[in-house]
Amino acid sequence: MALHRDIFWVGRQWAVTGAGIQAVDQRLRGVLDIDIARLWDDHLVQSRRVKPGVNAADFDKALTLARERFPQAPDADLIVAQLEALGVIETPVASPVVPAMNLRGEGSLARFLPQWRIRR
């Protein structure tokens, strides 16, 4: 997988991006990448660190920087925390409930509704 467009730090082998920790070598196709939601999973982190060919010092630096940028949050607010860390939203969402859509054409046959056109 290609590196995420938001790159915060690039080392010799690892990069901290908007997607989490990603391997700089694109021939791996994202096999060793760690998503933001899994940064605090110590078992996954240890399994990536002991892989052959992994630069441990570079990996530890990337992990430290990624954990500072994306702090651990409760599972319920994980998506909101990721968006706040990326700077997409500045305040937490009050309610994730989407209002119901009111359609004016309910109960009418489509062939009798007026058509719309784009005027140039």
Rank of each mutant, 00 (worst) to 15 (best):
I79M: 04
A81Y: 07
V88T: 11
H43A: 09
Q72S: 02
V98N: 02
V54L: 01
V98H: 05
E90K: 08
A37I: 13
A76Y: 07
T91E: 09
R48Y: 01
V97I: 15
A19Y: 14
R38V: 04
V93R: 14
S95P: 03
L28W: 14
T17K: 13
P74H: 00
R69Y: 07
Q26N: 05
L44V: 12
A76N: 06
G53C: 04
V98Y: 02
D75C: 01
I79F: 05
V80Q: 03
A85C: 12
A15H: 07
R48K: 12
T64A: 05
V93M: 03
E68A: 10
G30M: 13
D60N: 14
K51W: 08
H43L: 11
D75A: 07
S95D: 14
I21H: 04
I36W: 08
D41C: 02
L32V: 08
A23P: 15
A23V: 13
G20F: 09
V24A: 04
V98D: 05
Q26A: 12
D42T: 12
E68K: 11
L65Y: 13
V93K: 10
Q22M: 13
R67L: 14
R67F: 14
D75L: 09
V24F: 08
A62Q: 02
D60K: 08
T17C: 11
L83D: 04
A23R: 09
L39P: 00
R48A: 02
L86A: 00
D42W: 02
Q22D: 09
T17A: 02
L39H: 06
G87K: 11
A73W: 03
D41Y: 01
L65M: 15
D25A: 05
F70H: 05
E90N: 10
A76C: 01
K51L: 14
D60C: 11
L28A: 08
V24E: 05
V93N: 01
R29T: 13
V88Y: 12
L28Q: 13
Q82G: 02
Q46S: 09
L63N: 02
D33T: 00
R48V: 14
Q82K: 10
D33K: 05
A62F: 04
R69S: 03
Q82P: 07
V24K: 05
D42L: 03
I89G: 04
R49I: 14
G20R: 07
D42M: 04
V45M: 10
